[in-house]
């Protein structure tokens, strides 16, 4: 393996010792990856080589925050906790990739695990495959870090054909408490299916906050757009009225106007 950037020679301080050893082995040319053969070949097709399977994790105590029974509001402490925990896991994964001299990480998965032993604690994990361009050109993002993306090998290939390059997996989160309805409110509208504007407004705002935060991350990367935006809703272990709204997507930057995708041909597949 050649062309290791200067800044990657020093082992990152907060990676565990075992990870350091594993990564050193990877530097001798062996690669590990959870890519399928198809994905591996497609990544080679666009001039990238997999370097190794990288991961980062963070076990975070999420604490509690008092919620007002009757009002809808963002729970900023929880939002911050959810955000920081994921950010830590991502950063550690990026450090591992950096150690390998990678240009980016594809197929990133973000998971949250809960364990019996830790009440209110959750493990946030990020994993993916570090890749490097074979032509020596740097594909690192505006911040000088390897790009991250949750794209599969197939998606990565397709995106490159459209003249776009991934910049980073961007996310925004917002933990929101949805008000309980008071007795008076419940009675006054009984008997009809009508809109509840306060609820609409609360859910609308929570999702918009998550999306705006994601967009802010993309702007910091100087991205021209975000593809594959997903909105996820999770109640974690907080009960049904407290919901985390998470939006995720891959920020991309346009490098060429040319779309080089060949025109597909029509086929009838005989496979089941």
């Amino acid at each position: 393996m050649t062309g290791k950037p200067e800044d990657a020679t020093a082992a990152p301080k907060d990676l565990p010792k075992d990870a350091g050893r594993r990564l050193q082995e990877l530097e001798h040319g062996l690669f590990t990856s959870d890519l399928s053969v198809n994905e591996f070949l497609l990544i080679k097709e666009v001039g990238f080589h997999p370097l190794g399977f990288v991961m980062g994790s963070s076990i975070y105590h999420t604490g509690i925050q008092t919620r007002k029974w009757g009002s809808s509001q963002e729970l900023t402490k929880l939002t911050e906790a959810m955000y920081n925990a994921r950010e830590l896991a991502m950063t550690r994964m990026e450090e591992e990739a950096n150690e390998l001299g990678a240009d980016g990480i594809v197929g990133v998965r973000l998971d949250v695990n809960y364990y019996e032993w830790g009440k209110d604690a959750a493990e946030f994990i990020a994993m993916g495959t570090a890749v490097k361009a074979e032509n020596g050109q740097s594909y690192r993002n505006k911040k000088g870090a390897p790009f991250t993306s949750d794209l599969s090998g197939q998606d990565f290939w397709t995106l490159m054909q459209t003249g776009h390059v991934p910049q980073g997996l961007v996310m925004g989160t917002c933990v929101y408490h949805i008000a309980h309805r008071g007795l008076g409110q419940t009675l006054s509208s009984t008997g009809q299916n009508v809109e509840l504007p306060n609820f609409t407004q609360a859910l609308y705002e929570a999702r918009e906050l998550a999306m705006t935060r994601m967009q802010d991350e993309a702007d910091e990367l100087g991205a021209s757009g975000i593809v594959g935006v997903r909105l996820e809703e999770k109640t974690h272990q907080w009960g049904s009225h407290t919901i985390e709204f998470l939006s995720l997507g891959t920020a991309v930057v346009k490098t060429s106007d040319e779309v080089t995708l060949p025109r597909p041909t029509t086929i009838i597949s005989l496979d089941n």
Partner: peptide
């Protein structure tokens, strides 16, 4: 108002 567009499309759909 932000500069970047957001798209819920998958990459093949985007392409």
């Amino acid at each position: 108002q932000s500069g970047a567009f957001t798209s819920g499309l998958t990459v093949p759909d985007f392409a």
